[in-house]
Design a binder for these strands. Structure first.
Lengths: 162, 162
DNA sequence: AACAGTATCTGCATACGTGCAGAGATTTGG
DNA sequence: CCAAATCTCTGCACGTATGCAGATACTGTT
């Protein structure tokens, strides 16, 4: 069932191993940055959006507002994000990533970037361009897949009624 | 410092977003599979190695043997792995992934695979071949980067002297 | 047979992430 | 000006992941 084309079985494995490798690299990066996965995910959202309110962050991460408050606390304490008041609505708060922190994250990703640069060095400029074209197309595809997965399996862990 | 070539700044961003997207997809998959990151990482090791002893798993994950025992317990309870006795040395145990479980994991990765297939459909066979060549080369590179990161930043979290 | 070495597992303690329910502050609408 | 709605934050409780140290079981050697 999860074995689609009978022909490209090698591709199947290659793709899986590649996905694993990239994912694990991300985990290691998060860990090296001293962040847990929720925090890593939230920080990634923040860097792409620029700024979000705790409420928005809560809905985007699927956490409750309470848990999100704590998450922002940790992010803030670790120096990765900061709260800024909304000038018009004083109930609201904006959470934005601290630029230096993004640099730190970037630094953690450095090894991956360097290793990949070595790999890309084997290719011609045209080939490299194609691969980057793939990157640009694949990123939204993976984000869509993420949405799909999250939508399919709402429970965040083996459900325990309580 | 973390800004290497001054030329390919767009590539810089593209790569970063791509990495983020793939990584987050992996996180969502793990979560959908009901696994935490350590478990996901361990299971990935097990599927690549086929079988490992708790001790080996401990050194590979960087956890203590005690924590590894619990991790295997959870993995076993969730039906992703099983312990089998070593026939010659009865102190030892082998931990191997349950085939069905790997199918389940594969199923979780399904959305990503499908979305990516759509992306790849835009390319010619030659181009696809190139991209898969990239996959095959990049996976070990990312694994090496992971090792490098883990080696650089041993503490698993903001260290608190215990 | 005794002993040292090895592999795994078990209390115990701790920290942490999360949900839930409610409180506090603020805006919006009558 | 009062009431309802909105947004965020704060106890409280719970499960759990992890480390540490010791217990247990087994192997190999002398």
């Amino acid at each position: 069932m999860s074995n689609p084309g009978s022909g490209g079985d090698g591709e199947h494995v290659i793709f899986r191993q590649y996905l694993d490798a990239v994912g694990l690299q991300g985990l290691a990066s998060a860990e090296a940055a001293g962040l847990h996965t929720s925090e890593w995910y939230a920080l990634s959202l923040l860097s792409r959006e620029g700024s979000l309110t705790p409420g928005e962050l809560a809905t985007r991460t699927g956490l409750t507002t309470g848990a999100t408050t704590r998450l922002i606390d940790r992010l803030e304490r670790a120096g990765y994000a900061r709260r800024t008041p909304d000038p018009t609505d004083r109930r609201r708060v904006h959470v934005e990533p601290v630029p230096d922190a993004l640099d730190r994250v970037e630094e953690v990703v450095g090894p991956a970037r360097r290793r990949l640069a070595e790999v890309l060095a084997h290719y011609t400029p045209d080939q490299r361009a194609l691969i980057f074209d793939y990157f640009a197309r694949a990123a939204p595809a993976f984000r869509a897949a993420t949405e799909e997965i999250r939508a399919t399996a709402p429970p965040r862990r083996a459900r325990r009624p309580g």
